[in-house]
């Protein structure tokens, strides 16, 4: 069965969300992957959006983080302060699902500026909920398309902490959550090395060469000794994803959304 690089990225990301997990979902690719998980292997995942819906089960993907579809399909809708105070800071979120504009070798994230802060070349939207999702969720999944512009040696700005400068940096700062446990891209899956915490390619998507990954990474990227090939999407995963995106396109003229 044929599939695109975007489809394998979304499917591979969705598989990482355990059934029953409480998941704090960012808009865009994370929302697509989290809902695909909910519609396939994780029907009991509890999806939380920062605008207030808890247990959202959208039939079409939201274009914005506060679409009415999220409220209509949620178990409950609570005020935004409760989302951040009682759920996220309260330690009730198992998985934070994030996208990013830039990422470095320790999975630190930049969504603030390209260039100097005071005279930015590109002013990005900013932090949103990401810094506290990155620190307070028990673990973090990152889904992002891979290119040398996105996977950079040095971030212009650290908006949200990954593993900082590696090793036990998070523990030293007493950050509650474990931080990023996987980065899923359109080329491969990377995981932090257990000791150094440097992102290491553990799985290549079918047809992707290590050279392609090297060319799309702004640092000399490491590969795991037991590198595997990402399992191809199943018939069910692919048909569920395509149906979801088709319903979404019909509803608001675009297949995915990006924060």
């Amino acid at each position: 069965m044929n599939y695109t690089t975007n489809e394998i990225m979304t499917v591979a990301a969705a598989r990482r969300l355990p059934d029953g997990a409480v998941c704090f979902v960012g808009i865009g690719l994370p929302s697509t992957a989290a809902n695909l998980a909910r519609l396939t292997h994780a029907p009991d995942a509890l999806l939380i959006y920062e605008s207030g819906p808890v247990g959202a089960k959208p039939d079409v993907l939201p274009l914005s983080i506060g679409d009415g579809e999220l409220a209509d399909t949620a178990d409950m809708v609570i005020p935004t302060p409760e989302i951040f105070r009682y759920w996220l800071q309260g330690g009730r979120v198992d998985v934070g699902f994030l996208g990013t504009a830039q990422i470095d070798r320790f999975a630190n994230l930049n969504t603030t500026v390209i260039g100097p802060y005071d005279h930015p070349k590109v002013r990005l939207p900013g932090a949103g909920g990401a810094p506290e999702i990155a620190s307070n969720a028990k673990e973090v999944l990152i889904i992002v398309k891979q290119s040398a512009r996105t996977f950079v040696k040095t971030l212009d700005f650290v908006t949200s902490a990954g593993h900082l400068d590696g090793g036990d940096a998070r523990e030293r700062l007493k950050i509650p959550g474990k931080g990023p446990v996987a980065v899923i891209t359109d080329l491969c899956i990377l995981e932090p090395d257990p000791v150094s915490k440097e992102l290491t390619v553990v799985s290549l998507h079918a047809g992707v060469s290590p050279e392609q990954v090297r060319a799309a990474t702004g640092w000399p990227v490491q590969f795991a000794a037991n590198l595997v090939e990402t399992a191809a999407p199943t018939e069910r995963e692919l048909s569920t994803l395509r149906a979801l995106q088709q319903r979404t396109a019909l509803a608001h003229g675009t297949a995915t959304a990006s924060e």
């Binding site: 951040f84 105070r85 800071q89 909920g129 810094p131 506290e132 620190s135 949200s160 902490a161 700062l173």
Partner: peptide, 27 residues
């Protein structure tokens, strides 16, 4: 960040001078 902004409104509503947050570590 969002969590901080939401907290700062709560603090404002409660007539407190500042809000408290477990956040921004490493940012």
């Amino acid at each position: 960040g969002h969590a901080d902004m939401a907290n700062a409104y709560v603090a404002g509503a409660a007539n407190l001078p500042f809000s408290v947050l477990r956040g921004y570590q490493g940012s």
